[in-house]
């Protein structure tokens, strides 16, 4: 014990601090370097899709009306059998009129398990979408929700009736409804929603950020803020 040695505690503190400091320095360096090189392209990309993970808006995600400028994107995860979505529908319609051409309204399917016809209705809308009638079928679902919602038996025949009334090619519609790919398309939307932390419907994302409006006015204010920001 002649040579004065540093205590084990002190040595551990020194070694640990050095390791952590080196790690933090490395991460900071990587971040600043990455931010410099990746910014221009990444930013534009992130602005267009709202999130760099791309789960919020897929290339084949449906838009209500014409695409806006891409500056403000409102994504709604919805379930056609959900009453709260039905309740939000007039507001969304109103905002679509107010912000036409300024805001992108993107719709994602998020069928809730407890609704017996949530998947059926989403598949029907998706089948209609394949014939370019997404919006018509979307509206029809909400307009008629009271007549088919909250029931246990399959309402697929009812939805088929809607398709017929909309003048769809029924052979193609039936084929699309039966096609596993249509269901998978709906399920992928739902999975994206789950991954994004969607827990119920309707869930809105404004420019990639989950929106929790306290009132309809608050909803509009937040969109206005995004437009002016």
């Amino acid at each position: 014990m002649k040579a004065p040695k540093t205590s084990p505690v002190k040595r551990n503190v020194i070694v640990s601090s050095l390791v952590i400091a080196a790690f933090v320095a490395l991460v900071t360096a990587a971040l600043t370097l990455g931010a410099k090189t990746a910014n221009p392209s990444d930013r534009a990309d992130a602005a267009a899709t709202g999130t760099a993970t791309g789960k919020l808006v897929r290339d084949d995600s449906h838009r209500l009306g014409a695409a806006g400028t891409g500056k403000v994107v409102l994504v709604e995860f919805l379930d056609f059998e959900c009453e709260a979505c039905r309740a939000a529908y007039p507001l969304v319609e109103e905002m679509r009129a107010t912000y036409a051409g300024k805001v992108d309204f993107v719709v994602r399917y998020f069928p809730i398990d407890s609704h017996a016809n949530a998947v059926n209705s989403a598949v029907a809308v998706e089948a209609a979408a394949q014939q370019g009638k997404f919006e018509e079928m979307y509206k029809r679902m909400y307009d008629t929700q009271a007549t088919w919602g909250e029931q246990q038996e399959s309402k697929a025949p009812v939805f088929r009736g809607f398709a017929d009334e909309l003048g769809l090619d029924m052979a193609a519609y039936d084929k699309a409804v039966a096609d596993k790919a249509t269901l998978e398309r709906v399920e992928r939307d739902r999975q994206d929603g789950l991954d994004l932390g969607v827990q119920g419907t309707p869930t809105f994302f404004l420019n990639g950020k989950k929106l929790e409006p306290t009132s309809t006015q608050d909803f509009r204010d937040k969109i206005d803020a995004a437009l002016n920001g």
Binding site: R11, N12, V15, F23, A35, A38, D42
Partner: peptide, 26 residues
């Protein structure tokens, strides 16, 4: 050096996590 060993070990794993999910953290 046991505590330092734990720190080094955890930092290595934190590094793997950072690299793997880098795009997300950014």
């Amino acid at each position: 050096y046991a505590p330092s060993l734990v720190i080094v070990w955890l930092v290595l794993i934190a590094g793997l996590i950072l690299v793997q999910f880098w795009d997300y953290w950014v």
